[in-house]
């Protein structure tokens, strides 16, 4: 056992470096996916028929194919259209294009659960549709979408491990490298899993903090009060 901890201790520096790459990749794809997701959701709810069809088609294609295939297609097709990206940005692009489709659907659900009377009141004040969606609808919709969005964040954090396949030196790739160099496969992957758990726990704590900050006093839907 002492042997294991010594091994873990020695592997830690490079694994932590891999974790940083994982975190960067997660942060990029989640934030850009979030912004894109809002736009897609607004387009699908408020856009005209053409916009609706295009966005719905996109979302269905993304949800209908494995993420791994999307990653490989994007990674290997970019050079064909003259874009040569390092592995990390290419993977971030693939993940962002994927998660934005899922996030769009969660946000759309939030938008549709905002009461029509809220929109009516905003219009009655003379707000434009743009102002109404920005100041009234989205703040409420995003609060309602916060739980599924959190789930998506946690899922995405772990999904970035797929990018080892295109050579991104993230956490799993680092663990694999150590495993191949030392022939201690099981130990390396167990340490890798433990690091994932720790990161996810910290992330969940952070999400809990955000939930608390965004909670509207007096308005706890679905809570049974005594």
């Amino acid at each position: 056992m002492a042997h294991f901890f010594q091994f873990a201790w020695d592997a830690l520096p490079s694994l932590l470096q891999g974790s940083v790459t994982t975190l960067i990749l997660t942060a990029i794809c989640l934030t850009s996916g979030f912004i894109l997701g809002i736009l897609l959701a607004l387009g699908r709810v408020y856009g005209n028929k053409l916009i609706y069809i295009v966005i719905t088609g996109y979302i269905n294609i993304i949800r209908g194919t494995p993420l791994l295939i999307q990653l490989l297609i994007i990674y290997y097709s970019l050079p064909h259209i003259g874009i040569i990206l390092p592995a990390l940005p290419a993977a971030a692009l693939a993940f962002a294009l994927n998660t934005c489709a899922y996030q769009a659907e969660y946000i759309r659900g939030g938008i549709q659960s905002v009461q029509a009377t809220q929109v009516l009141a905003a219009h009655a004040l003379g707000m434009s549709s743009y102002q109404t969606s920005l100041y009234i609808v989205l703040p409420q919709a995003l609060r309602m979408a916060i739980l599924p969005l959190s789930n998506e964040g946690i899922l995405m954090l772990k999904t970035t491990s797929l990018s080892f396949l295109v050579g991104v030196p993230e956490l799993l790739a680092t663990a694999r490298k150590i495993a191949y160099q030392t022939f201690r496969y099981l130990d390396a992957f167990i340490i890798c899993a433990v690091i994932y758990i720790v990161i996810v726990f910290i992330f969940v704590g952070f999400l809990g903090f955000i939930h608390k900050r965004l909670r509207i006093p007096g308005l706890q839907k679905g809570t049974i009060t005594r």
Binding site: Q118, L120, L125, S128, Q140, I216
Partner: peptide, 23 residues
């Protein structure tokens, strides 16, 4: 559209169910 936004802003409306912005 523009005129209507302007006109709405000059007419106050109070609803049966208040419709305050809950957030």
């Amino acid at each position: 559209k523009r005129e209507i936004y302007k006109i709405r802003s000059s007419i106050g409306m109070v609803f049966q169910h208040f419709n305050l912005f809950s957030h």
